[in-house]
Design a protein around this nucleic acid. Structure first.
Lengths: 214, 214, 214, 214
DNA sequence: AATGAATGAGTTTTCATTCAT
DNA sequence: CATGAATGAAAACTCATTCAT
């Protein structure tokens, strides 16, 4: 792995463990056993490292939430499709949890990043709506167009804010994988009232899947 | 107003405007036209100021969300009750928005605060559940106990994260009162699938109320 | 002496001895036995210290080169007047020699300072012209108005550039007081061709005065 | 052009534009689209680059200011000789202006350069004196030996400091060719008081020449 | 000749906090 | 209660220079 990538990965690890605020560029350098000068050879400043991390995140976001082509979809049982999306959300939330936990702070200090973030989220939103449409077409959920928009928004909000929200309710600061799994369950709770009979069965399956991991 | 309170209010103002991270204790002192020494006479450290702000927040939280006594309730039309709760939630979120924007960060640096915060949120959660129960008893919503828990959680999450969620997506000058009203509408969207015929009517009334303000 | 003034004086001393470039803010703090934080309590940055030094310089410049009122002048023998002006030039050049030695560099990094400098020099130029007029009126020099302007400009240039120019010709880097005295003599050389018989006598006296100090 | 020469020329350009202090060796390499390693293959350090620039300067200085052989001189009208010298001086000053702007600083960091510089200036001084002698012999100026020395020094000083003197007083965009011509005129002003009747005529011619270019 | 990643000591600056008055 | 000067550890960042390839 190239140094530039090692920095991005090392920084991500430390940020997730200790929070972006308390991780200095010197910490990152020491953690990777490189000199601070070398770090600044690859990145002009700390912002640029965060921005680099975000680019990776955005790339994953894009590929994971591209709605599948219809023919592929019909071949795959719907529960598998839902599972794959939920797992994607889980992994992103877990792998970039420092980002989810400090979003307003991080974005307020970097206008360019804020712009990138907004664009990525708009693209994501469109994809999510398409995905919901396909769930409706498959008879998993049953709702009007405006209700579908509202549901998507709620799901997006739960996904983006879950970690932030949960930190409030936990007695220690540690965000563990179990916390994220609870988020998946909460998202299923949000969808359940709109589910068809068939959809409800599948949601039950998924719930069993995640409850097993708590 | 005593100096101690002036500090708490001044700090809150600056934190909300610029974020806790970039507001120094010297900024606060300068803003209030007092000396840093004086500030530290009233508060041992910055944490204690934040903690003081939190105490105010917790007090408001408690008084606003005590479920009303049954007799009062019966005298007040339910739509009014919901309206008052929604207004309360968003007013609090707006007045203490810096807090939500930096929660994991702030709590990770102050274990005592963390504990207070958790307790306050648990109390709030219980109140919210009681409120939801009374709504069910009034025949506004119709759901099982576990669904009620899930709904409450979603509502709490939407309420506490709405401003953060939107500030991440919008630019500073786009954060207006209208954003708050959209948050109210989003909460109504969350409730609607569980509403009874009667509840649905009231939700419609509230929607008209808020749409008129956009 | 207040700390703020101690910093200005200490910095000036170190700048004169070692050049502005190689004197760091930490050097200055260490030299005064104060903490770097304290230095930055009084000055936002290094530029501001230099600016503070310049303000002192400009104040001296102004008071020393205000042309004397006519009646005062007539009471004082002309040679004394000339001597007092030359000594003023000498002292300024000596006390602020780091400034004279690095002018383009220092001004290029601080637009505000550059503006202050330009204004100070314009005021100085007017004073110098007035002084030259009074010398002509006293019959010490004899020249047309445009020649007087040219002479003033040459004298100003010699004064401002002498140290810079001399560094070139000396085999060691040390600017000593003798170097400055040679500058005084050079200025007299510039004036001499325009001197009247009476003026020439006085210039000779002054030359003796400065040659004795070499 | 060899890489070594490209470095010298590129560095000179950047130094003149931005000042030696703020131009890093990496800037120079980037500007030339070579690697920093390659730059250090050709030069041991930054000082050596500056030294290389100086060598070019010294070479030009030498060839331009060798007093012409007598027979050549008699063939060329004196006004032409003066014109050619004036042009040479200011061209050099302009092409190597960074050097004059930072002289004390640059020389203080490199003893070897300091020595070279001093020798070059002494040689120049002797040449200038020889040139002045020939002007006196041609009956253009009339003065004693010591006055001639003083005049030479003043001329040298005006020539070498003019650009610095003006950059301190003017803003960047005001430093144009016109400023250079004003410097030429200022030098003529310095010589005029010593000029013979015949010399005065020629000075007038030159003045017309430069005033036409303002 | 040339590359470009890497070094590390050094520089400016920040800021929560203390302390003498 | 209040002042405001002072602290000092630590943060971000720089840059001349080296070195393996």
């Amino acid at each position: 792995m190239k140094t530039k990538d090692r920095i991005i990965h090392g920084a991500l690890t430390l940020f997730n463990e200790n929070g972006e605020r308390s991780v200095t560029t010197n910490h990152i350098a020491a953690h990777l056993e490189i000199s601070p000068g070398n770090l600044y050879y690859h990145f002009r400043n700390k912002e640029e490292i965060i921005s680099g991390i975000f680019d990776n995140y955005a790339k994953e976001l894009k590929t994971r939430f591209q709605p599948m082509a219809e023919d592929q979809q019909s071949n795959m049982p719907s529960v598998q499709v839902m599972l794959s999306y939920l797992d994607s959300i889980f992994e992103l939330m877990w792998n970039y949890r420092f980002f989810y936990a400090n979003l307003p702070d991080i974005l307020s200090r970097d206008d360019a990043l804020k712009l990138k973030y907004t664009k990525a989220q708009q693209a994501l939103n469109e994809n999510l709506i398409a995905i919901m449409h396909s769930f409706r077409d498959s008879g998993l959920i049953d709702l009007e167009d405006d209700e579908l928009q509202a549901l998507t928004k709620t799901l997006h909000l739960v996904a983006s804010c879950w970690i932030n929200y949960q930190t409030a309710l936990l007695s220690d600061n540690e965000i563990t994988e179990a916390v994220i799994y609870q988020g998946m369950l909460q998202m299923l709770n949000v969808v359940r009232p709109m589910a068809t009979e068939q959809g409800r069965k599948q949601i039950l399956e998924l719930e069993e899947h995640y409850k097993g991991r708590l």
